[in-house]
C-alpha cells in the first residue's frame, strides 16, 4: 500500500446522480481522488465527463449524492465558495473575460480567490510569475480577443492557477491543438502536478492521457465502466467497446 492510499482523499464523490428532466446524465457515480494525484477522466462524447466536472465545481446542483473536499461537505456550496476552498477549473470551450486583458483576467482571480491581506505589489508579482511559468509573460497586456487558441487555453490555466487551487480540473485543454501544442500544454500540467497540485484531466487525446495519468476513469452513459492504471483501463473490453462500438 502506497502512502497516498493511506491518506484521506482530497475529493470524495459519493453516489452522485444528475438528472436533466427525464434524462439521467450521471448514475450514482462514486470515486475518491487522492491528494497530489494525476487523474485522467475519459469517455465517449456525451458520457457525462463535463457534467461530472460541473457538479464538482458547483455549476450544476446535484440531487442525490454528496461531494466532500478535504473532508468538508461542499455539495450545497456555490461555485465561488468552492473556488475559494481550492477547486479551480478550465472550460472545454475557453471562457475568458473578453473585455479584459490577460493581466486583468488574472487579477480577478487574485482579487477574489487568493485570500485577503495581499498587497497590490505582491499580487502583480504572483501574476507575473504565473504568466511566465505558462509562457504568457509577453502577453500580459494583450486583450484576450487577440490570443491564439493555445494561448487562450494557457490563459485559462493561468487564471485557474491564480486562485491558488489544491485541485485543478482541466476540461479538454488540448482540444483542437496541434501535436506540438498538445505537448506544450501537457508539460505545463505535469509541471503543475509536480508542485503538489492534484489534477483531474479530461481528454480525448489518448497519448496525452496515457502519458499524464497515474489513474484513469472511464465513463459511459453516466456510469463508471472502468477505473485503474492507464494500461488497465485501455485493456478493458468495455472501454474498447464504448470507444469503438461493437
Amino acid at each position: 500500500m502506497t502512502l497516498s492510499e493511506t491518506q484521506s482523499p482530497l475529493l470524495r464523490i459519493c453516489a452522485l446522480t444528475k438528472r436533466f428532466g427525464g434524462f439521467t446524465a450521471l448514475h450514482s457515480v462514486s470515486v475518491d481522488i487522492r491528494p497530489g494525484e494525476r487523474f485522467g477522466l475519459i469517455g465517449p462524447n456525451g458520457s457525462g465527463k463535463t457534467t461530472l466536472i460541473n457538479c464538482i465545481s458547483g455549476a450544476f446542483r446535484t440531487e442525490p449524492g454528496t461531494i466532500l473536499f478535504r473532508d468538508e461537505d461542499i455539495t450545497r456550496l456555490q461555485p465561488h465558495m468552492r473556488t475559494r476552498r481550492g477547486i479551480a477549473r478550465s472550460f472545454q470551450i475557453p471562457r475568458p473575460f473578453r473585455s479584459m486583458t490577460v493581466a486583468e483576467n488574472l487579477m480577478v482571480a487574485l482579487d477574489f480567490a487568493a485570500g485577503e491581506h495581499v498587497s497590490m505589489t505582491q499580487r502583480r508579482d504572483t501574476m507575473m510569475s504565473i504568466l511566465d511559468q505558462m509562457g504568457l509573460g509577453s502577453k500580459v497586456n494583450a486583450s484576450t480577443t487577440r490570443l491564439s487558441q493555445v494561448e487562450l487555453r494557457k490563459m485559462e490555466l493561468a487564471r485557474a492557477m491564480a486562485t491558488r487551487p489544491k485541485l485543478l480540473i482541466s476540461d479538454e485543454a488540448m482540444a483542437g491543438l496541434s501535436s506540438s501544442e498538445v505537448d506544450e500544454v501537457l508539460d505545463l500540467l505535469l509541471s503543475l502536478a509536480s508542485r503538489d497540485i492534484t489534477i483531474i484531466m479530461i481528454e480525448h487525446i489518448m497519448q496525452a492521457v496515457m502519458r499524464f495519468s497515474e489513474r484513469v476513469m472511464c465513463l459511459d452513459a453516466g456510469r463508471i465502466i472502468a477505473i485503474g492504471t492507464p494500461s488497465e483501463v485501455m485493456a478493458d473490453k468495455r472501454v474498447q467497446e464504448a470507444y469503438l462500438g461493437t
Partner: peptide, 25 residues
Amino acid sequence: SWIGRGLQALRDDELAAECTGVPTL
C-alpha cells in the same frame, strides 16, 4: 476597485466569474 473588476468579469461571463471566485449574486 475589485468591485468593478468583479462586475466586469460577471458581465463578460457569469459562470467563469463564479469559477474564478467572484460572488456574482
